[in-house]
Amino acid sequence: MRRPVQVVGAVLALLWLVVPMVPMLVWAGAERWSFPDLLPGRWGVSAWREAASAGLPLALLRSFVLGLAVAAVATPLGVMAGRALGWRLTRRPRLVVTALLVPLALPPFAVAMGLDVVLIRIGLPGTVSVVLLLAVVAVPYTAYTSATAFARTSPELEAQAQALGATPGQARRRVVLPAVRGSVLVGALLSFLVGWSDYVVTLLVGGGRLVTAPVLLGAAASGSGNDPMVAVTALATFLPPVVLVSLLVARGSLPTRRNVPTRRSVTSRRGDQVPVADLPSPIMTEQNRTH
Rank of each mutant, 00 (worst) to 15 (best):
V117P: 09
V118K: 08
V118N: 02
V118E: 03
V118H: 07
V118M: 12
I120S: 05
I120E: 10
I122H: 04
I122E: 10
I122W: 12
G123N: 01
G123D: 01
G123R: 02
G123L: 02
L124P: 02
L124D: 01
P125K: 09
P125F: 04
G126M: 00
G126P: 01
T127Q: 13
T127I: 11
T127N: 02
T127Y: 14
V128W: 10
S129I: 11
S129W: 00
V131N: 10
V131F: 08
V131H: 11
L132Q: 13
L132V: 15
L132T: 09
L133A: 05
L133P: 03
L133Q: 09
L133G: 05
L133V: 12
L133M: 14
L134W: 04
L134Q: 14
A135E: 13
V136H: 06
V136Q: 13
V137P: 00
V137C: 11
V139S: 10
Y141E: 06
Y141N: 03
Y141M: 12
Y141P: 03
Y141S: 10
T142P: 07
T142N: 12
T142D: 05
A143V: 03
Y144N: 04
Y144L: 02
T145P: 05
S146L: 06
S146V: 08
S146F: 03
S146I: 00
S146M: 03
S146Y: 03
A147G: 04
A147S: 13
A147V: 02
A147I: 08
T148P: 01
T148I: 09
T148V: 13
A149D: 06
F150E: 07
F150Q: 06
F150W: 09
F150D: 11
A151K: 07
R152T: 11
R152K: 08
R152D: 12
R152C: 04
T153H: 08
T153Y: 08
T153E: 06
S154N: 02
S154A: 09
P155G: 12
P155I: 00
P155C: 03
E156K: 10
E156C: 07
L157K: 14
E158I: 02
E158D: 01
E158W: 06
A159I: 06
Q160H: 10
A161W: 14
A161H: 14
Q162H: 04
A163D: 13
A163N: 12
A163K: 09
L164Q: 15
L164W: 15
L164F: 15
T167L: 00
T167F: 03
P168S: 00
P168K: 05
A171M: 03
A171N: 09
A171W: 07
A171R: 03
R172T: 02
R172D: 01
R172K: 00
R172E: 08
R172M: 00
R173P: 01
R173G: 00
R174I: 05
R174M: 11
R174G: 04
V175K: 15
V175G: 12
V176T: 15
V176S: 05
L177I: 04
